[in-house]
Amino acid sequence: MVSGLINANPIIYEKKERRARPTPTFTDDGAAEPIDQQEIFDHIRDIKDPEHPYSLEELKVINEDAIEVDDQHSYVRVTFTPTVEHCSMATVIGLCLRVKLMRSLPSRYKVDIIVAPGSHSTEAAVNKQLNDKERVAAALENPNLLDMVDECLAPSFG
């Protein structure tokens, strides 16, 4: 039924260099370091694309500027851009992003995952599916889907 890849020949972009954070001095051991854009990006940049052996960062599905964080109000929004408009993998990618953030962020956070406006043919449907708690939970009960998600997430726990 599945005939070939959805996007057989995606464009690969270069990885951004990992910014080294200034090493905290010992005097401010008590100072808080709030969760920020870069930290969220570091969580999700290495997620593998479901189709190709490349990371979402290399395919420019996600980038740092498309992440919104508000640590005080415990809110994160990740906007991602599927490589092709009719990409049926968009939901899987979104699910991966959600699961990864679910596992990496404190439980107080509310996470929104949305497709970049205009980048997908069934944008509304995908967004609805990704942000519906029940449907996400149901999806994760499907062992095949869960395996797939776990496989994609594996490289991001480096």
Binding site: R21, H43, R103
Partner: peptide, 24 residues
């Protein structure tokens, strides 16, 4: 670990993510 995910230090949070994955 789920408490450590909300640690105020970034390095601790990163270790917590790894640890959670290892124990999941």
């Amino acid at each position: 670990i789920s408490r450590a995910l909300d640690d105020k230090k970034r390095a601790v949070r990163l270790e917590a993510v790894k640890c959670r994955q290892a124990w999941a």
